[in-house]
Design a protein around this nucleic acid. Structure first.
Lengths: 260, 260
DNA sequence: AGCTAGAGTTTATGGCATAAACGTAAGCGT
DNA sequence: ACGCTTACGTTTATGCCATAAACTCTAGCT
């Protein structure tokens, strides 16, 4: 990974999904799963910026960073494995149920919960192509639900993408706030106050009355409520564009024109 | 910026907005604006991962990376300035107009267009607190529109956040695809085919029929259409929760319960 | 017994941000 | 005119990263 910042990563190196785990000796002391678990623990605690090969190796015990490369190919490979392992935590039904909204809502809600458990997830997922087996399985389920409700395949792909954007976008924002609190708040509460005051000062100077008022006394739905809210908005929107009110199969390529 | 990857950045260092540009000599050869412009050009061309102090300095002419620090304080400071400069490109009306949907749609659409001009924007914006003056101004406008329509302040903040999440989430995805194409596609078209085939192989093996079908022949709304679509969904949802159908001021703290 | 392949280590390279100390020259007051 | 100050840019050095390459050790097969 040449530069970690890039949210549009370097996919040039072969993806780890093309290489299977090397065949094991009897009981090799180090395994992919151990490494992924350790890396996940490191990132859970310190965020994505704490995830370095050295930190993972240290956590595993008496290992050097280079030991990991034999098993995970590269840091990108490790990240791919971590992302897929985390995705595996969201349960995906074998078959779509009778209520398509519940199906999609379930996937979204579970994903949201997972992303809150692993705040690094939302930070890292946009840096890698979402091609892990569990992510594929998850996507396929979403598509089946939508196509089963009459959406055209291309539309289904768009709707799924749109829902996921919302889940992971929200999680990303949550992660930001968490990190902000970590840096400004926890260790030095007076710095939090100072920063907030500075910003409020800017807001007031700029004549930003509403913003200043809100910063003085934040209110409104919290992240979870916002998540539920916009999820509902999106499902409503999708529903309005599905062809049959309670239908079976259908091409569904025609769609009502939305309000402009 | 210790680790660039982190989408939840290090806000510990004082924000650049607290420091004004140092007073200039007669005509200092290097100015903040020059630097920000050059940095923007670098990132426009090479993406966020190409944005290094050295690259910016090189672009400016016969300067060393360290020269920049006198003017922008740190790389984070530079990024903050870049983000705000880009935000300044989206026009914000002085006053809300008669049609609140048009107002919000306008901000969102212009922001989307800006983010497509500067693909690094969506990659970098989640790494820094959105406290630049232009960003504040933009947010204040959104709030004024919503509060003017009867939303409670806290709700307005949530709605604005929710809309922005979609704008920048979509832009982020666009940036990913662009980078992916850059790495896999442009220089070596056969590698694109190989990669797609590999993934399709995985999809087929896993019995992911719809996914495989779609990868065989992608279809459906493109990014712009998806953007418009989900924007409409969200505006519809917000509209349904605004108190008065065509009203003036109002507390708006009660809201219809959404369909579950 | 000896070979081999896998596991982990050591060493080295190069990119990156950035702290610290160092010229250098432009403008100021005297 | 003289010297001091101060902004400006450079040099040098530090430390953190990922990771390539070569090396060592050892289990287990032939």
């Amino acid at each position: 990974m040449k530069d970690e910042r890039t949210a549009a990563g370097d996919f040039g190196t072969p993806l780890i999904w093309t290489r299977t785990e090397p065949p094991k000796r009897r009981q090799s002391p180090l395994e992919r799963d151990d490494i992924v678990r350790a890396a996940t623990a490191v990132a859970d605690e310190g965020g994505a910026e704490a995830l370095t090969m050295a930190a993972v190796a240290r956590r595993l015990g008496p290992y050097t960073p280079m030991a990991l490369y034999r098993h995970v190919m590269s840091k990108d490979g490790l990240v791919d494995l971590m992302l897929d392992a985390a995705t595996a935590e969201v349960p995906v039904p074998a078959e779509p149920g009778p209520d398509w909204r519940a199906d999609l809502r379930g996937i979204a809600t579970e994903s949201w919960a997972m992303a809150k458990r692993h705040l690094w997830f939302a930070q890292l997922v946009p840096t890698r192509p979402p091609l892990g087996p569990h992510m594929l399985r998850r996507t396929e389920f979403q598509l089946r639900v939508l196509v089963g409700r009459g959406a055209a395949l291309g539309e289904a792909v768009a709707y799924a993408a749109l829902l996921d954007r919302h889940v992971f976008g929200g999680a990303q924002q949550e992660a930001e706030e968490h990190a902000m609190r970590r840096w400004l708040g926890i260790d030095t509460p007076e710095r939090l106050a100072a920063a907030v005051n500075a910003v409020r000062g800017v807001a007031e100077q700029g004549g930003h009355e509403l913003l200043a008022r809100w910063m003085e006394e934040p209110s409104g739905p919290d992240m979870d409520e916002q998540f539920t809210l916009s999820l509902t908005f999106l499902l409503d929107g999708i529903e309005a564009r599905l062809p049959n009110p309670e239908g079976c199969q259908g091409s569904g390529s025609t769609s009502p024109s939305p309000k402009q």
